[in-house]
């Protein structure tokens, strides 16, 4: 691949006291792809994502956005580069309405004196934009943007989070276990939104435990193991069983020809 990655991490290290979260982890995200990140608990998926979204600061290593060296001190820094994150916990304010949630922390003021002097918010404008945004992502069923989010189902709430990320994330959308709290039908809705975003050229990083979901939606799969990248596979070249085997360390992938071989310890045991 000669394409320049939209988002790249090189040799990230992050420790928490004596616990090693990331041990020289790499990651590349290319334009217009869905990159799934899988790994066992404690493999460093979350830490990796937190570094990319600015929620954690790596101890060492480098990160690049479109080739430019960046360092994020907090999530607002990552946002300034067009990187938006959707979290597993439904990160919406339940009592606020849909439009307010979509624009939370990025409210739009009215034009003229009302906005400049009296700092009046443009409620109607935000509702119209919210409606457009929700329709664009295939959730046109929600009509009333002044409806409180707590009156929505879990899937619809997550849709609001995804819509918010999509509205402001100009370069990268990171989804951290977006379907963990959702039912099957609602999960499919979120997966559909992911495909829509990819089709519109927006690259997506999807962290998930759910292998069928990962294999149905991802273009490439980054397998995280023991704090670093064990392999990158694709749904075409490898099976779910292969991916799980790499995740648990039972199989190793040759970096050049992607051939699988038993890991050293297991080979020794055989």
């Amino acid at each position: 691949m000669t394409l320049q990655p939209v988002l790249q991490a090189k040799g990230l290290v992050k420790t928490f006291g004596r616990v090693v979260g990331l041990n020289s982890a790499d990651l590349e995200l290319y334009p217009g792809e869905v990159l799934a990140v899988i790994g066992d608990n404690g493999a460093g998926k979350s830490t990796l994502i937190k570094c990319l979204s600015g929620a954690e600061i790596p101890d060492s290593g480098e990160m690049f956005v479109e080739g430019e060296l960046v360092s994020f001190k907090r999530s607002l820094d990552a946002r300034a580069y067009g990187i938006e994150t959707v979290y597993q916990t439904l990160a919406v304010a339940p009592a606020l309405d849909i439009a307010s949630n979509l624009f939370l922390g990025r409210e739009v003021r009215s034009k003229g004196i009302a906005g400049k002097v009296f700092r009046k918010l443009d409620h109607n404008g935000m509702r119209t934009l919210a409606k457009e945004q929700m329709t664009k992502l295939g959730i046109g069923t929600l009509q009333d943007m002044s409806q409180a989010v707590e009156t929505l189902s879990g899937g619809q709430r997550q849709a609001v989070s995804v819509a918010r990320a999509e509205a402001f994330g100009s370069k990268v959308i990171i989804l951290d276990e977006p379907t963990a709290a959702l039912g099957v039908r609602e999960s499919n809705q979120v997966l559909k939104m992911i495909e829509l975003m990819r089709d519109r050229g927006l690259p997506v990083i999807l962290i998930s435990h759910n292998m069928p979901q990962v294999f149905s939606v991802a273009d490439r799969i980054h397998v995280q193991r023991l704090g670093s990248r064990a392999a990158v596979v694709t749904p075409n070249s490898h099976t779910m069983n292969d991916a799980v085997a790499i995740m648990t360390g039972a199989l190793k992938v040759d970096e050049n020809d992607q051939a699988l071989s038993p890991a050293q310890a297991i080979a020794d045991a055989l």
Binding site: R79, Y87, A91, A93, P94
Partner: peptide, 10 residues
């Protein structure tokens, strides 16, 4: 309403 969500929203 939800300080964690507010904080995540920036």
């Amino acid at each position: 309403d939800d300080p964690a969500a507010a904080s995540l929203a920036g």
